[in-house]
Nucleic acid binder design. Structure first.
Lengths: 215, 215
DNA sequence: GTCCAGCTGTCATTAATCTGACAGCAGCTA
DNA sequence: TAGCTGCTGTCAGATTAATGACAGCTGGAC
């Protein structure tokens, strides 16, 4: 394995796609071996890109043959860290928060939302997918006790920074932020913004341009 | 305005951030003029990047002064196409679908989910944020009648391609895909994958690496 | 008016990322 | 065994994006 610092972000974004594709192949299709061309074909990624991405982490294939599906899946899973379960604390039991807790496909990626918090008295005590919504005040204790490193923020923008601060205080090292705002965090905490309103705009941009040229 | 083809994707992803920030400044803060340094500072983007991004579309600032907040907001809004309302059809009234319909921040970006479809008889007829869930069979007609160009897919992966095909058949030109699968579409249809399970993995990757080096 | 600090727009440079080309290995055929 | 096809891993080149440097404009101070 080479210097982990020098691996393109784009590569890391593609690895989960490979992983899920390999999982699907291992589970539903009866294939033992896959070539970079096959794998790339399913994901609309050039075969050279697939090989390059994998080569950052070692040599997983056999020349003249291809990659063993199960073996590669295990390897990629280990690279990504999804070969174990990562407990996560979610704050914000609104519509989006509930959807995330109920979302099915996280398990495969090692994510388990183990506790849910809110500060709305109407929501505290409710059950979401068998998890009781607790008061935000209980978060720190719970996070520390269970050594939770992963936090998910699905509160309104105004409240997000305060929640983040509290999470960091409690020892959380990675934040998945659904609030439409930038978070200020120390260097050793990583943040991934999943900003839905921003996501849609690139589509609107293309649509808008298309309509203009159509006329 | 220069050749629209040559504008970096990354720039288009940043424009909505500028837009929302400008909106916030225009609404809540009492500033008339903003510099690229200020704007970038709020978003953690270098000022040179801000100026470069804007310069692809024209000259919006005044040398020695900066950008007029309201003017720039209007200009960026127009560039992005969010200066009008884009009706959208959503298919899949599960937890995520419901969360999207109820999501507040889309309005500002011009997105309005005007109709919701599902094929689950238990869901058809329900109200989500004042919109009645209709049968998927009614989608084509509704989309064609209202000339809807934007489709949102929040169904399980297995059903996504069929929904996409139906959308395209009905004239939809842009698809926001929340299903964890690749969609095959004609060239003139744009797809934006909002793959939540993939999004979380890059965080897990960093966490996993951090733990390794901590020891 | 002149000077100065601060700002934009853009060209030149550097960095990041992707793509193409190919040596080298594997397995099959005869 | 030799010959052929298909595949990987990697180097070199091309492409794309980010950064640095600076000319030119602006408004206020004096």
């Amino acid at each position: 394995m080479k210097d982990r610092e020098k691996i393109p972000k784009a590569t890391i974004e593609r690895l989960p796609l490979y992983y899920r594709c390999l999982d699907k192949m291992a589970t539903f299709e009866d294939v033992e071996v896959v070539s970079s061309k096959d794998l790339g074909g399913k994901l609309d990624i050039p075969s050279t890109q697939v090989r390059k991405d994998l080569s950052y982490y070692g040599e997983f294939g056999r020349r003249g043959v291809g990659y063993n599906v199960n073996e590669l899946k295990r390897s990629v899973g280990k690279i990504l860290g999804v070969n174990r379960t990562w407990p996560a604390a979610l704050v914000g039991a609104g519509n989006l928060g509930r959807a995330l807790v109920n979302y099915g496909s996280f398990e495969m990626m090692g994510l388990e939302i183990t506790c849910v918090f809110d500060n709305d008295l109407d929501k505290i005590g409710n059950l979401i997918n068998e998890r009781e919504v607790k008061s935000v005040q209980e978060m720190s204790q719970k996070v520390m006790k269970n050594e939770i490193k992963l936090g998910i923020i699905s509160v309104p923008a105004e409240a997000a920074q305060a929640v983040a601060d509290q999470m960091i205080e409690a020892g959380i090292k990675a934040i998945w932020n659904f609030a439409p705002t930038r978070l200020y965090v120390p260097e050793d905490v990583s943040v991934k913004n999943e900003d839905l309103a921003v996501g849609i705009v690139s589509l609107i941009y293309h649509l808008s341009w298309q309509e203009e040229t159509d006329v």
